[in-house]
């Protein structure tokens, strides 16, 4: 037999031995996974408490920010190498890079969360280019700054005061039932705010020429009611 054929055969044997060895290592790794854990594909690390959260990166995987009793960072194990997190003073800075999907598709993204951030103290979130879902915030004020192609969705939140400043091409919307007693909007550039599933007592707004606000029937009624109340107030 020619030497080159013997070498190819040797390579095939080495490869098969490698596959067998990795098979036994993977068997051990598989045994470590708790199949009853809903976060079985994730890895959690506790983080120090933070008040400011800065997120940048890409929108391929949604990032969940959930109000909770503790502070932790849970990342999809397959995307662990895509995450960079830095804790300084009261700020947690996160860069979660990866693929980008078209902006119009981002909010419809059904991909499981890439990161789940649990926090009990955050009151300021700055999001650049990523897609975040803000979930279950209760009785806490929040400043949200969106820039670039950032997308934010609120789910079942209650805020005494919610301030949103959007720039670039960023977008935001609401799911479930949301309440903001004082709702301050500042929309600039080509931003879009989808006001649906949100109740507010007071709405203050600054909307630039190229920005757009899309209102649901219910929100439009709230806006008109608020406008009428103002008209009925005695003027000096």
């Amino acid at each position: 037999m020619k030497k080159s054929n013997i070498a190819l055969l040797g390579l095939a044997l080495i490869f098969t031995a490698g596959m067998l060895t990795t098979g036994f290592i993977l068997k051990k790794e598989a045994a470590k996974i708790n199949l009853n854990d809903p976060l079985r594909n994730y890895e959690t690390t506790p983080t120090a408490a933070f008040k400011v959260l800065k997120i940048s990166g890409s929108n391929g995987y949604p990032i969940h920010i959930q109000y909770d009793t503790g502070n932790s960072l849970t990342v999809l194990r397959r995307r662990k190498s895509f995450l960079k997190a830095k804790n300084t003073a009261d700020t947690l800075e996160i860069i979660f890079s990866g693929a980008n999907i078209p902006l119009d598709e981002a909010s419809k993204n059904t991909t499981p969360a890439g990161i789940i951030i649990k926090t009990n103290a955050v009151n300021k979130i700055a999001n650049q280019n990523t897609f975040v879902r803000i979930i279950d915030f209760r009785k806490t004020d929040l400043d949200l700054a969106l820039s670039g192609q950032a997308v934010a969705t609120f789910s079942n939140c209650q805020f005494p005061a919610l301030n949103i400043r959007a720039t670039g091409q960023s977008r935001f919307g609401f799911d479930g039932q949301n309440i903001a007693d004082n709702f301050n909007l500042n929309l600039q550039n080509s931003t879009i705010g989808f006001l649906k599933n949100i109740q507010f007592a007071v709405l203050q707004h600054q909307v630039g020429d190229s920005a757009a606000v899309v209102l649901s029937n219910q929100v439009m009624a709230q806006v008109f009611n608020q406008g009428q109340k103002k008209l009925m107030q005695p003027t000096k």
Partner: peptide, 27 residues
């Protein structure tokens, strides 16, 4: 993927099993 990892289905969800980081680097 040979010499890397596999995924299997559990209750409609894919579960990923990968090599430990140091062995994965060698691979």
């Amino acid at each position: 993927t040979p010499l890397s990892g596999f995924q299997f289905e559990h209750q409609g969800e894919n579960i990923y099993v990968n090599l430990p980081e140091n062995i994965d680097s060698i691979s």
